[in-house]
């Protein structure tokens, strides 16, 4: 059974100068145990999609269209109290900065035990044993001793491991990880990526991994959704999207990433910049920067078409039969 199904989701912000859609018509599906990468530039809507799924859109923003289903049950229109029970218990979250995601005045153990007891109704002793077990699983050395220390006594990488333990200790079905490795150094980032993948495999939790780093996606995700100007422009298995991108934005993006190895004289670049939400063109939002644009692109918005596994929103792939 599909774990998460998002259909035609639109998040709008209502302001004095009119309504701005942060994300538009976003649809995606996620199976249990799957890691879906969401990649895009800042402002593309990848974090907003994650926030909408977890019910963290604050006014003046709100979900103005579409629906979100978790294990078949609609969760986008629940009252705040009900969504609060889902958050943490069935959907966990990992954010970018491990220092601000932890409470500095509580020990790591107190935070873990409180989370476990809130969601799983375990007695204190059993919750503590489980907290120690989680610290061990995320690779904290000497967890029996470390459980009674404070977040500032951990290094950056170890703190992010604690955040991962906190997100997973209530045994959620889905975790939204928003730039979980961006604040970490490269050598530590690799450890955290490997840990996330290992835990997803062991526990069967599905992960939505939001990041701007294609390298992290390549090493971690099973499928990737590429976002541009509030919409998903391409979805597919990571290896396919990376090897044979079909949307001109994806291929431009892939080409412009510098790589280790023989270097080109000039790095391929996409001219211009992504339009801001209030200045999106009527047709395809990428058309002004697209080297392949033709007649329909500037007026007609391409729909995301294809199979649930691989789909692309581009007139090039729909108008011209392959």
């Amino acid at each position: 059974m599909t774990l998460l199904s998002v259909k035609n989701l639109t998040v709008a912000f209502f302001g004095r100068s009119g309504t701005v859609n942060a994300i538009e018509d976003v649809s995606l599906e996620l199976e249990p145990g799957e890691i879906l990468g969401m990649v895009g530039e800042s402002g593309a809507g990848k974090s907003m999609t994650g926030a909408a799924i977890i019910g963290l859109i604050e006014p003046p923003g709100r979900i103005s269209a579409g629906e979100i289903r978790l294990e078949g049950e609609r969760i986008d229109n629940l009252p705040p109290e009900a969504i609060r029970r889902i958050r943490g218990r069935r959907i966990g979250a990992i954010f970018q900065d491990p220092l601000t995601s932890l409470n500095p005045v509580l020990t790591v153990g107190e935070q873990l035990i409180e989370t476990i007891r809130t969601h799983l109704k375990l007695p204190r002793e059993a919750a503590r044993a489980r907290a120690i077990d989680w610290l061990r699983r995320v690779g904290i050395p000497a967890p029996e001793a470390r459980i009674d220390t404070y977040p500032h006594q951990y290094s950056g990488g170890m703190r992010q491991r604690v955040v991962i333990a906190l997100a997973l200790c209530a045994e959620p079905r889905l975790v939204i990880a928003d730039e979980p490795t961006t604040a970490l150094d490269v050598s530590v980032q690799a450890q955290v990526i490997a840990l996330l993948r290992q835990l997803a495999r062991e526990t069967g939790v599905a992960v939505i991994l939001v990041t701007h780093d294609m390298g992290v996606i390549a090493e971690t995700a099973d499928r990737v959704a590429v976002m541009y100007a509030g919409r998903i422009v391409e979805v597919g298995p990571v290896a396919e999207v990376l090897r044979a991108p079909r949307h001109p934005y994806t291929s431009g993006l892939m080409a412009s990433i510098p790589r280790i190895g023989p270097r080109p004289e000039v790095l391929p670049q996409i001219e211009g910049a992504m339009p801001r939400p209030h200045a999106r063109p009527p047709g395809c939002a990428f058309a002004p920067r697209c080297p392949h644009r033709f007649v329909p692109c500037t007026d007609e918005r391409p729909e995301l078409t294809g199979t649930p596994v691989r789909s692309v929103a581009c007139h090039l792939t729909t108008e011209v039969p392959a």
Partner: peptide
Amino acid sequence: RLLLETVPDISMAHRDQERPAGEV
């Protein structure tokens, strides 16, 4: 060598090798 090995790379999908341990 450690830095070069740990850079996430788009041509290195799903490496499952042993990760170098430790932090700065």
